[in-house]
Design a protein around this nucleic acid. Structure first.
Lengths: 146, 146
DNA sequence: CAGGATCCCGCTAGATACTG
DNA sequence: CAGTATCTAGCGGGATCCTG
């Protein structure tokens, strides 16, 4: 249609649309749709191993590089560093360097990071909660589809 | 902070831990942490283009292959088909073939799929909502870090 | 300790062509 | 219309070595 006026009005709130290939939000969606992002945020969001003290998991927690590295089993330094840099650049986490004898670096969620952690935690939690159902569905699917 | 008994009970549900490299939930997290998954679920979850009729977005919507292909701008048939197969195998969507003259295939969310759509919508929505802030942070970061 | 820099392999995503 | 099949380029991501 010629009049883009109507479209603009509808766009008011939805300035960005991830369904559109060229939209920046599409790239952002791609970035945050990453297992390492989910796990880093979950770790900094206070998602403890035992599953305790979570649910909304609102207390943010400062962690050192080596702590994160240990927590995210199997992550390479490259991916961890790369993920941390990306998150820092996007303003989701803050990197603090303390010039102790061997230098100490800690990472912490920003408020913006906390807001994302909230939704990303849901994804990680979903995966853990529905793993059994998914596994069953896969077996069924593989059985049916010879 | 009381007895660990309470924790253990809460633990009962947390049979899987995505922080562990070998855990199946780690792979599942990796699968669903995908932009195409997010977009397919959002589309089938009734996330309309104009931004209308959403929020909790609870009405599921049946869509044809070509509809999805058009909706997810820029997706290749390979990626779309691959994503749809994966989601079907995991029991998140249902594929229905109607033997009309040119065959008609429709996709629809299952209840399990709806539950994931709920959390994934949050991710897509976050990306669109905080795009501006992230963009500003990036500019700032790039400015500071010569 | 917390990375930076390289090398390099593998797999994935994209393009293209073909089919029921 | 709704895919399947094939080929290939590109880069994601791991391994390794080095540094402040």
């Amino acid at each position: 249609m010629a009049t883009s006026a109507a479209q603009k009005r509808a766009h008011a709130k939805t300035e960005y649309d991830a369904f559109l290939a060229g939209c920046p939000s599409r790239q952002l969606l791609e970035r945050i749709s990453d297992k390492w992002v989910a796990l880093v945020l979950a770790a900094l969001g206070g998602d403890d191993a035992g599953g305790a003290a979570r649910h909304g998991g609102s207390q943010r927690r400062s962690m050192r590089y080596s702590e994160l590295s240990r927590r995210l089993a199997g992550v390479s330094q490259k991916m961890l560093t790369q993920t941390l840099r990306s998150l820092e650049r996007d303003g989701l986490i803050i990197r603090t360097v303390t010039p102790t004898v061997p230098v100490t670096v800690t990472y912490e969620l920003t408020d913006l990071g906390m807001s994302l952690q909230h939704v990303m935690y849901g994804v990680k939690d979903w995966a853990e909660a529905h793993m059994g159902a998914v596994l069953a569905n896969r077996t069924h699917y593989d059985t049916v589809h010879s």
